[in-house]
């Protein structure tokens, strides 16, 4: 139920922003649409509502994860630009395994998305039971677990673990 209420609030807020400046007609239509969305999709939105209201987690997410993510995204673009423009295309592609300790759906989703948008890597598949991500790497340095973790996982995994997983945050 809590998840449905959150979903309704979120959908309604997005609607209000999308048809800024709100007037009565828009607000009524938005409320109806948000209700339908919340009734159908509500149960899958947030499975652990208490995580969302933990100020330390939100703080870490906004001021630690997002700046690093944007920096990595810009680096990724220059990396791809370099490989594309270079006459001989210095690429050495392959699919490698990355072992992860994250368990929650949100954490895994954010890890996979971060990996896709950072230099030279693209998530192909996730095996949730064994905690393995299959990653297409444009410039393979090595396929053993230590190398892949050092080169790909270590940038984001500890951070996401702190934000989405651990029970007590300091």
């Amino acid at each position: 139920m809590k998840s449905r209420i959150l979903m309704f609030t979120f959908a309604f807020a997005v609607w209000c922003i999308l048809c800024w400046v709100p007037d009565t007609q828009h607000l009524i239509a938005g409320a109806v649409v948000a209700l339908i969305v919340a009734a159908i999709m509500g149960s899958m939105f947030v499975t652990r509502p208490h995580m969302l209201f933990n100020p330390i987690r939100v703080f870490y997410f906004l001021f630690w994860y997002i700046p690093i993510f944007i920096w990595e995204l810009i680096r990724a673009n220059f990396d791809v630009a370099y490989r594309v423009i270079h006459p001989s295309m210095p690429i050495k592609p392959g699919i490698v395994r990355l072992k992860t300790e994250l368990k929650s759906d949100t954490g895994l989703t954010f890890l996979a998305n971060s990996i896709t948008l950072t230099p030279g890597t693209l998530t192909v598949d996730i095996n949730k039971d064994d905690g393995i991500l299959y990653i297409h790497w444009i410039n393979v340095v090595g396929s053993d677990p230590e190398t892949t973790y050092r080169e790909i996982g270590s940038r984001f995994e500890p951070m996401l673990k702190k934000i989405f997983e651990e029970d007590v945050v300091k």
């Binding site: 990724a76 673009n77 490989r83 423009i85 896709t116 948008l117 890597t121 693209l122 297409h136 444009i138």
Partner: peptide
Amino acid sequence: LGLVRLPDVYNRLQAATKCVTLG
């Protein structure tokens, strides 16, 4: 440009996703 130059579907996706997102 990456979409045209790179050799296979996975490499092309890399260029397409990253550059088009930031761009």
